[in-house]
């Protein structure tokens, strides 16, 4: 088992390296010249040279990459071209804000989605199954920016129960989830963001449970005299690795932030930051954010892998 864990961690390193190469290349893959945004249109050749030197664009690519990577691992992602603030601070703030939504959306989505799927999978073809499938399809196919707007109209404008947008009067820096006056701002975006994962997890769970319940060993469990609850426990353990894989993916997607949802709720999260960076051609911010998110994604997958192998011993051999 320890060997397997080490092996998986070692596999993750080249993946992370590959990701960083891609992120670095973004500067050159993106059309246009990043310098254009910082330089005035009438900049002289001399000024261009100076700025190029300052940003290190004059060195050969592999050297640029090595310098960039050695800084990145210490948390130095350079300066944002648009705000002149350290990219690191921008990312910490944005990913932190999105993370705050995710911390609530994930348990909500996982528990509701999983319970719905479990119920449906235990009674395939029955009314519960059909209602769950209906709700799941609804959740997945609703455009979430539309849902966001409807939520704002209903709960903020019409009923005035909850605030519509933003992170409270003091903004992102003073935000505390422990104060209801701040935490109420989380409610609508969290619910909106949970919809798609609820649908996807419900469907995956339903399929995995229904399929597992048809396996031969379930009959053996019944033949042993186990009650329905004990049988379900076995079924869930068998179905869990497949569900975990999907949960991991959903976790990753949520962490990336939804540009549309964060825009509707003016929530300064990672989606917001990315969209701003794209508009401003702010390549350092783009690079840094994508790299952080990609590494988070790789880490989540690693954790999922390890959890799966803890549950299902057959995975450890592969």
């Amino acid at each position: 088992m320890t060997r397997y864990i080490l092996q998986r961690i070692l596999y993750a390193i080249p993946i992370a390296f590959g990701v960083s190469v891609v992120c670095f290349s973004l500067v050159y893959l993106a059309p246009g010249d990043p310098l254009q945004t910082i330089l005035p249109p009438d900049a002289t050749a001399e000024t261009i040279e100076i700025v190029k030197k300052a940003y290190g664009f004059d060195k050969p690519l592999p050297i640029q990459f090595a310098i960039w990577l050695s800084k990145v691992v210490t948390g130095d992602f350079g300066m944002s071209i648009a705000t002149r603030r350290p990219v690191f601070d921008e990312i910490v703030m944005a990913v932190g804000n999105t993370g705050m939504l995710v911390v609530f959306a994930i348990p909500l989505a996982f528990s509701i989605g999983f319970s719905m799927g479990l119920l449906a999978g235990c009674f395939p073809g029955k009314v519960v199954d059909r209602s769950v499938t209906g709700i799941a399809v609804f959740g997945v196919s609703l455009p979430n920016y539309w849902l966001a707007i409807v939520m704002v109209i209903v709960f903020a404008v019409e009923l005035s129960w909850l605030p519509a947008t933003g992170m409270g009067p003091k903004g992102s820096d003073a935000f505390s989830v422990w104060r209801w006056s701040d935490a109420r701002f989380l409610v609508l975006p969290v619910i909106t963001l949970s919809m798609i994962p609820i649908g996807i997890i419900a469907r995956t769970t339903r399929a995995a449970i229904a399929e597992t319940r048809n396996q031969d060993f379930v009959q053996t469990l019944r033949a042993k005299g186990l009650g329905e609850m004990a049988v379900i426990r076995h079924v869930v353990k068998n179905a869990l690795p497949g569900v975990l894989a999907v949960m991991g993916l959903q976790f990753g997607y949520l962490l990336g932030g939804s540009i549309l949802v964060e825009t509707v709720f003016t929530w300064p999260g990672s989606g917001f930051l990315l969209s701003k960076a794209i508009v401003n051609r702010d390549v350092p911010v783009l690079q840094g954010t994508i790299l952080v998110l990609a590494v988070a994604f790789v880490t989540i997958n690693l954790v999922v892998d390890l959890l799966q192998s803890l549950i299902d011993p057959r995975i450890r051999r592969g």
């Binding site: 053996t220 005299g225 186990l226 076995h234 299902d312 011993p313």
Partner: peptide, 26 residues
């Protein structure tokens, strides 16, 4: 419960496929 007490208690069953008849994760 009476039926479940019978199953595996007084009457038990062995199946054809030992590979699939046992729970793979226990």
């Amino acid at each position: 419960k009476a039926l479940r007490d019978l199953r595996g208690g007084e009457v038990s069953m062995i199946f054809q496929e030992p590979m699939t008849a046992l729970d793979p994760v226990y």
